[in-house]
């Protein structure tokens, strides 16, 4: 059969092909939904010492932060990968996480660590998100209305900006007082234990406000994933839709980064797994599956860290480690294109 089909390229070869992978996305949705819910409940109630009235609101706050970050990172990564037609790039390549570090560094450098901390986290948050949105808006405006208009140029500029921001941050960190640097380091690493309730509420509103248009775009995103030419032929207003998607992405990344620091590799992990689980590519399935995977990974990971390892290490380190391994495995399997 094999040899015959190679001499007749158009010959039907379905008999030697395996059928479509059997588990439909809806089953995964249910499984992951139940798992996410169970983990959230477990996180809330397992190992409570002392007064529940004191512990529960604090834990609720942390679970809320994790769920928000899971949504923001999963949705932004998938939208970004659909628009760029690439499954290895993430929004971090646009230099957003590097910008976050630069903003933090510059604020500590200019105002001093103590002054920055006394600024209060909501105000700091608003400043950071505004600066990051401003940056991405400038980048897209310039690239889409300028002469280039190509996503590849956008990505290249993103990489160059990232290197530039990192370089400036390193310079500022060298010049800085060592005790200030310690404060700075504390701000960088993702932590779900320091999130301010007001910040959380603000971010929740922003994330919800962005997920509604993202969900409404889901059918158009499916078409966009076919590539520019097919999308235009099928009547998509390509430039407008892509700009809208990239703005949604950058705000989501900005919110999640400002909330808990850079956890961008997490997006890669979640999206790669979500594509594997969906036997057919539809954003209506991929988006919720990626979000649920994100919640399971974050809440489950934090639960294990706290209850098993008793807080010895930061969750972001574990996630970057596991994500790196999973991603390498996927790469070596040759599935990621």
């Amino acid at each position: 059969m094999r040899s015959r089909s190679s001499t007749l390229p158009m010959a039907l070869t379905q008999s030697v092909r395996k059928p479509v992978r059997s588990v439909p996305p809806s089953v995964w949705l249910v499984i992951l939904g139940v798992a996410a819910l169970a983990l959230i409940i477990a996180f809330m109630v397992v190992g409570i010492e002392g007064s529940p009235a004191y512990v529960l609101p604090r834990r609720l706050n942390r679970v809320g932060a994790m769920v928000l970050v899971a949504i923001a990172v999963a949705v932004s990564t998938i939208l970004f990968q659909t628009v760029t037609g690439n499954r290895i790039l993430t929004p971090s390549i646009m230099g957003l996480d590097a910008l976050y570090i630069l903003i933090q560094t510059a604020l500590v450098f200019l105002l001093g660590g103590q002054a920055l901390l006394s600024l209060g986290s909501p105000l700091r948050f608003v400043i950071e998100v505004a600066l990051m949105i401003g940056f991405s808006w400038l980048l897209y405006r310039w690239l889409f209305l300028g002469s280039g208009r190509s996503l590849h140029l956008l990505l290249l500029v993103g990489i160059v900006f990232g290197v530039f921001f990192r370089g400036v941050s390193t310079l500022l960190q060298r010049l800085m007082d060592p005790s200030e640097f310690i404060i700075l380091q504390g701000l960088f690493f993702a932590s779900f234990n320091r999130v301010d309730p007001t910040l959380l509420l603000l971010s929740a509103v922003v994330v919800a406000g962005l997920c509604i248009p993202a969900w409404r775009l889901r059918h158009r995103l499916d078409v966009l994933a076919l590539g520019r030419d097919s999308a235009v032929s099928l009547g998509i207003d390509y430039r407008r839709t892509v700009t809208l998607v990239l703005v949604i992405c950058s705000v989501l990344v900005a919110v999640s980064t400002a909330l808990v620091g850079p956890v961008t590799f997490f997006g890669l992990l979640v999206s790669a797994l979500a594509y594997q689980l969906c036997n057919r590519f539809h954003h209506a399935a991929v988006l919720p599956i990626a979000v649920l995977l994100g919640i399971v990974a974050l809440v489950g990971g934090q639960l294990v860290l706290e209850q098993v390892f008793e807080f010895d290490t930061a969750l972001s380190i574990v996630i970057e480690f596991v994500g790196g391994i999973v991603f390498l495995v996927l790469l070596l399997k040759g599935r990621v294109r």
Binding site: H219, R280, F281
Partner: peptide, 18 residues
Amino acid sequence: NQLTIRLSVRDLVGFGRF
């Protein structure tokens, strides 16, 4: 016409109805 995503033939043809 390179696809980066995994689609069945019927799904692809279905996009024509978009």
